[in-house]
Amino acid sequence: MWLWFNKLTTSKVFYQFAGRLLPWLGALTIILLAYGLYGGLVLAPPDYQQGDAFRIIYVHVPCALLSMMIYVFMAVAAAVGLIFRIKLADMLVTASAPLGASFTLLALVTGSLWGKPMWGAWWVWDARLTSELILLFLYLGVIALRSAIPDREQAAKACAILLIVGVINIPIIHYSVYWWNTLHQGATLKLFGSSLIAPSMLHPLLAMIAAFIFYFAVVLLLRTRCEILKRERKSRWVLELKN
């Protein structure tokens, strides 16, 4: 197991492994996305209060979930990279940061678009919205910090520490709606126990969440492969690949 892990984290092996995995992940993404979109936009009935406006849930919830999941993934990768000095970890972090930032921005924008007709305001400084905005700034901070430090190893270390410190924001985002009075509603999906959404609306939502996760995996692997080629452009196996 340890040996296998060590082998996989070498750039060349990971590059080939990712290449073999990509078509499968891509196919899964397309299937799930097709079902999720059709189910969410056509099959699911309108909500009793919000009518068709509730359908933004099929983009908003997966985006918000991914924005937090990607951050945790990056923080874990950064910690592993710090402890074991694995170069691949930093490449994964570099590849994920813009993705995480985009999902966070999308979650904020879709939420705002829904908030105006439903709540009556584009933006409210409640705990959930503010902590999600801080998450966006954390992502932008990681991206900025990386490009501000020319030395790659030092940049990786600085980003890793920022990521590890910032991970405290994740439970705050998740529990903000329970700890404080917020305008944002509580969680609809429950990991344990029954969700507070009708099954006919739930299934497309779960499909969309899975589709977004696989989409993230696909783009992450593509970007990481690109990063590997960029960093190892002088090594022999990359030159051989070119010819």
Binding site: P46, D47, S200
Partner: peptide, 17 residues
């Protein structure tokens, strides 16, 4: 000066309601 509606976490079709 401003009134905002708070939505709850329940989603269901009109027929169920």
């Amino acid at each position: 000066d401003q009134v905002l509606a708070k939505h709850d976490e329940r989603y269901m079709p009109a027929a169920v309601k």
